[in-house]
């Protein structure tokens, strides 16, 4: 339980930092941009998220001794909110790299934090490790779209800086710890990932009409249309069922 809160804390800290960055950047572009916000729900009884047996690596067991980890493929919070859904604008025609930050994909307690990381094509991100056990970071994109690679990160290894060329939902895994699965969501334009309550906010959206897409692993997508007015927040809610 404590760990879930930790993840929550990290996510909210990230959101706070992003908000801060956005507030600062909005001073620069006074275009009166709006935002898209909403909730993603899971309909019906969510599938059971199995606990993870980490006995392969005693270090991982120890790191999670008080808060056993479970699979994150369908993470449904209280109230039916679905976490780790990436919400983005389909067919974005604005500037390619709206984010100026460098997202971080951490290997922490033998899990990926965040489980789903969104980046723009061409945007630099960092892969780092907080663990005292060796990982290998092995994204497996379709080689026809993006180029796969596989690098080791033993304890104390420096962060790796990378970027993806083309939009794609890329599964990432560690072969040493076969339960470690995460996603790099590479989409053009503004994007947000839902929190533990299924809530999201896409900032920095210029006024206009948009097709908004919500993606949940491994390959489910919901679509809706929304109109954003200058300086206003438009609402787009989604629901998924399995």
């Amino acid at each position: 339980m404590k760990n879930r809160i930790n993840v929550g804390a990290v996510v909210s800290a990230l959101v706070l930092v992003c908000c801060g960055a956005l507030l600062l950047s909005q001073k620069v572009n006074a275009a009166g941009e709006g935002k898209i916000t909403g909730t993603v729900k899971f309909e019906g009884t969510p599938p059971h998220m199995r606990g993870i047996d980490m006995s392969k690596d005693p270090w991982c067991v120890k790191a999670n001794a008080n808060t056993p980890q479970h699979l994150q493929t369908t993470e449904v919070g209280a109230g039916g909110g679905l976490e780790y859904v990436a919400v983005y604008i389909d067919g974005w025609s604005g500037p390619a790299n709206v984010e100026t930050s460098t997202p971080v994909f951490d290997q922490k307690n033998c899990m990926y934090v965040p489980h789903v990381m969104a980046v723009d094509p061409g945007q630099t991100f960092k892969v780092m490790t907080s663990d005292q056990t060796a990982h290998n970071i092995h994204p497996e994109p379709n080689p026809m779209v993006n180029i796969p690679w596989n690098q080791s990160q033993p304890p104390g290894a420096p962060p790796i800086e990378k970027s993806w060329k083309n939009p794609e939902m890329i599964p990432v895994q560690c072969n040493i710890h076969p339960w470690m699965h995460g996603w790099h969501v590479v989409v053009k334009g503004p994007v947000a990932v839902t929190d533990e309550n299924g809530k999201y906010t896409i900032e920095n959206v210029p006024p206009g009409s948009y097709t908004v897409k919500a993606w949940h692993e491994p390959d489910t997508t919901e679509t809706t249309k929304v109109t954003v007015a200058a300086g206003q927040a438009a609402t787009a809610d989604f629901s998924f069922k399995k």
Partner: peptide, 14 residues
Amino acid sequence: TGLDGTPMPSFADN
């Protein structure tokens, strides 16, 4: 260099 397509990663950075 690692053996691409397999679990064997590159250790060039480490």
